[in-house]
């Protein structure tokens, strides 16, 4: 989160759609989207871990594309739509990627998990066929410190298979 400044931070009104719900909020102009989602909207599923765009923990979809919410200002999503990890499951029914992450043990400490699932969601949204290298490239911006990635790769492959069969 930005260091404080001696100046008053101007505020602005932001209207956006998050997980299908419309929000209008007055926020400081320098507030990163990550902070907006977590501290203003209370959607703490999206995680911050480096605040430099190096780890991918804060990955969300903006108009369907993955972005790092630690590096986008909340002001920039005015009139745009954001999807976070909280927007994937339908009630208690898990998204197939979420279910696969549990099934393969891809969530150990779980901190990288929301970001990884969002990156995987964007990949599966875009492509009917996925090569091994496309899969790895899609997830290369998401650091996991626990798993060594094997169970994550397995989870995304499983989710892809299941959605093809569905």
């Amino acid at each position: 989160m930005p260091d404080p400044t001696p100046m008053e931070i101007p505020t602005m009104q932001v209207a956006c759609d998050v997980n299908g719900e419309s929000f209008t909020r007055d926020i400081p102009v320098d507030m990163p989207l990550l902070e907006f989602l977590r501290d203003v909207l209370g959607l703490t599923g999206t995680k911050g871990a480096c605040l430099e765009g190096e780890c991918g923990s804060c990955t969300v979809l903006v108009d369907g594309e993955t972005i790092n919410s630690c590096l986008m200002l909340a002001a920039q999503v005015n009139n745009r739509s954001v999807t976070t990890i909280e927007g994937l499951a339908a009630g208690t029914e898990l998204d197939v990627i979420q279910d696969s992450f549990v099934a393969t043990g891809a969530a150990q400490c779980g901190y990288c998990t929301p970001g990884l699932i969002m990156s995987a969601r964007a990949l599966l949204n875009d492509q009917p066929d996925i090569s091994e290298s496309e899969l790895l490239t899609a997830l290369e911006g998401n650091i996991c410190r626990c798993t060594g990635y094997a169970s994550i790769i397995e989870a995304v492959k499983r989710a892809h298979r299941e959605s093809q069969n569905a």
């Binding site: 320098d30 200002l73 002001a75």
Partner: peptide, 18 residues
């Protein structure tokens, strides 16, 4: 924002007008 906001997050710049 991939350079600007990194610098903001580090406290290296503190812009109030964008």
């Amino acid at each position: 924002g991939t350079d600007v906001v990194v610098a903001m997050n580090h406290g290296a710049i503190k812009p109030t007008t964008f």
